[in-house]
């Protein structure tokens, strides 16, 4: 028998704390596969953020730093400047990256910091129990938008990829989704490109991954993926918003 699919060796052999069906696990696996395929396990340094993925360092068998809420891009900057040969990535959720850490992510992009950012957008605060996120959809109910997000008082969802695509310093900005195998495969290619860019010294790369939170959305994992497809995709179109070509 020939192996078709095996567990990546950059993942530690532990059970994650994520809820059943949580796409964080998928995203972790894609990042680990990328690290394996690029042969960079020994020189990769991850930066964990605050959110459900706060313990990401337990799941990747690489050096890690745990950053304060929203500050992962600044921490990654510090690491990368000291050890430019390390491959540095941050792994951040939407509360961390798009709310409290908006300044850090924008300015890391502005500086063209040669790092890779994996950004999980599931339109809700998972860790703290399902509050409204900056990416929560209009009308979406959360514990702090119990009547549905009302743009009159709560504004509109922030589109991180579109926003960062306007930043000249950003080399690669793309949005993918984790709701089915075909999209997962595309996301993998995007993540790989984002790491490859760093190896080649091309500068700031960010992949936004649309994800679910079945627990806080109150759905089965399968229904959550369906909800993502039906509700998030129209608001968050997929694609590469900046590819660095022609620069």
């Amino acid at each position: 028998m020939i192996p078709v699919y095996t567990r990546p060796k950059s993942l530690t052999n532990v059970v994650t704390h994520y809820c059943p069906g949580c796409p964080h696990g998928i995203a972790h696996r894609l990042v680990a596969e990328t690290i394996d395929e690029l042969g960079i396990q020994g020189k990769t340094v991850g930066v964990a953020s605050v959110g459900c993925s706060v313990f990401a360092y337990n799941y990747f068998d690489v050096d890690f730093q745990q950053a304060a809420h929203g500050r992962a891009p600044a921490v990654a900057t510090g690491i990368k400047r000291v050890t430019p040969d390390s491959i540095v990535f941050t792994y951040q959720g939407d509360g961390d990256l798009a709310s409290i850490g908006m300044a850090e992510i924008v300015h890391a992009a502005v500086r063209g910091e040669n790092i890779t950012v994996v950004f999980i957008n599931n339109a809700i605060y998972g860790m703290t129990g399902g509050q409204m996120a900056p990416t929560t959809l209009v009308g979406q109910k959360t514990t702090t938008s119990p009547f549905g997000r009302d743009p009159k008082t709560q504004g509109y969802p922030v589109k991180v990829s579109e926003l960062l695509a306007t930043v000249k310093g950003a080399h690669y900005v793309a949005r993918f989704s984790l709701h089915n195998p075909a999209n997962i495969q595309r996301a993998k290619q995007g993540i790989k490109k984002a790491f490859q860019n760093q190896i080649e010294g091309k500068g700031f790369s960010l992949v936004e991954l649309l994800s679910t939170c079945s627990t806080n959305w109150g759905m089965t994992p399968q229904n959550a993926l369906k909800w993502l497809e039906e509700n998030m995709l129209p608001e968050y179109p997929l694609g590469e918003f900046k590819t660095g070509e022609g620069e």
């Binding site: 699919y5 059943p20 089915n180």
Partner: peptide, 21 residues
């Protein structure tokens, strides 16, 4: 059929897939 869709979907990297030579 060793399509590995299950493994690609699995959030916990639980599944290994092989195919005959």
């Amino acid at each position: 059929i060793s399509c590995a869709l299950c493994a690609r979907m699995c959030p916990d990297a639980v599944i290994e897939v092989r195919r005959p030579q």
